[in-house]
């Protein structure tokens, strides 16, 4: 197959409108000015003139390039939605649906993330790349060097949550669960991630820093988004991985940790529930207390940890590797172009 990857461009207002539109489609309350939406559409008309869009199959990812579809001339067009747009802001959806219905199909990560559309909505789960820096095998020396640079020691069982420091990922809930566990087990909690650019997330980070200041076994690692090898090393030495999200998103951190043979205790979102088979490769929990209970259960029955870890790795091997996603995309291409 001949393939190419095209990138749209625009000025600051184009990106601001696209960001606001996506946030509104994800359910956030945003004010979308009509002039801004018109400029977004016009910018993509200009983009369409610069890009080579003559193809048998055109995949458009997420919101910024979506209105390129108004300029389609040939081939089959697919909108790939990587976020949860099941409960969008009404006004934003009214505008955006007129664009989506001009595609031949849409693709969502889960049926729970999809809206009813006038075009077929296909489901392709995301995946992890086992050869990327995030997931590839690390030589012991390389792993130790990374952990040393992070100042993470391995003298006690390690609980790990990777994810942004936001309410939706509930790192404060994880700290509270750790405190319940700490009464019975000498463990260390590592929270690795970054604060997002909003006051609420900065407040969460401040609370986490305070927790770390008063307890040397709470380690808060502020890492950039591309700290893949660092995350990889942390997941490999973790005893139990946590993903106590409350906000809906697929959270592939679960599959990443399973790939490294770790049991995962996760929140009850649809994306996490897709990856965790309760009692087989981890547990779904609904509260701080439930999180602490499952951590203690595993720490008190250590033989379960490698067994669940092995089941998780096998589950990921069969279901969440990029090779499976590639097959899904090929099937979609065959189906749409047959």
């Amino acid at each position: 197959m001949d393939t190419s990857w095209e990138v749209t461009g625009g000025d600051a207002s184009y990106y601001a409108t696209a960001r606001a539109l996506q946030a509104a489609l994800e359910g956030g309350e945003r004010v979308l000015a009509e002039a801004g939406l018109e400029r977004y559409v016009e910018t993509n008309k200009t983009n369409a003139k610069k890009l080579d869009l003559r193809a048998d199959l055109v995949f458009i990812h997420d919101v910024p390039p979506a209105s390129l579809v108004t300029e389609r001339t040939a081939g089959r067009w697919v909108w790939r939605c990587h976020f949860d747009c099941a409960a969008p802001q009404h006004g934003a959806w009214s505008f955006f649906r007129t664009l989506v219905d001009r595609f031949d199909a849409a693709v969502f990560s889960l049926p729970q993330y999809a809206r009813r559309l006038g075009v077929p909505a296909y489901i392709l789960h995301p995946s992890i790349d086992p050869l990327s820096d995030r997931n590839r095998d690390l030589a012991p020396r390389e792993r130790e060097a990374v952990l040393t640079s992070l100042r993470v020691t391995q003298d006690k069982p390690l609980l790990l949550q990777v994810g942004p420091f936001t309410r939706g990922h509930d790192p404060l809930g994880v700290v509270n669960a750790y405190r319940i566990v700490k009464k019975h087990h000498d463990v260390r909690l590592v929270l690795a991630g970054h604060a997002e650019d909003d006051p609420d997330s900065r407040e969460v980070l401040a609370d986490l820093r305070e927790a770390a200041r008063t307890d040397e076994d709470v380690v808060v690692l502020e890492l950039p988004a591309d700290a893949h090898i660092q995350i990889n090393a942390l997941q490999r030495v973790a005893t139990i991985a946590l993903q106590k999200s409350t906000q809906e998103r697929f959270d592939l951190g679960v599959a990443e940790a399973m790939w490294k043979g770790k049991p995962v205790i996760g929140g009850p979102t649809a994306g996490i529930a897709q990856q965790i088979i309760p009692h087989v490769n981890g547990y779904i929990v609904h509260s701080v207390e439930g999180t602490a209970f499952r951590i203690r259960q595993l720490l008190n029955n250590r033989e379960q940890i490698p067994r669940m870890g092995a089941a998780g790795r096998e589950h990921v091997r069969r279901t969440f590797l990029i090779t499976r996603q590639l097959l899904d995309y090929l099937a979609l291409m065959v189906h749409l172009t047959a």
């Binding site: 969502f108 049926p111 809206r115 559309l117 077929p120 909505a121 899904d328 090929l330």
Partner: peptide
């Protein structure tokens, strides 16, 4: 075979 899933927009 490869199974291509399609959401029907119907739920219970």
């Amino acid at each position: 075979c490869v199974e291509l899933r399609q959401a029907l927009g119907l739920l219970a």
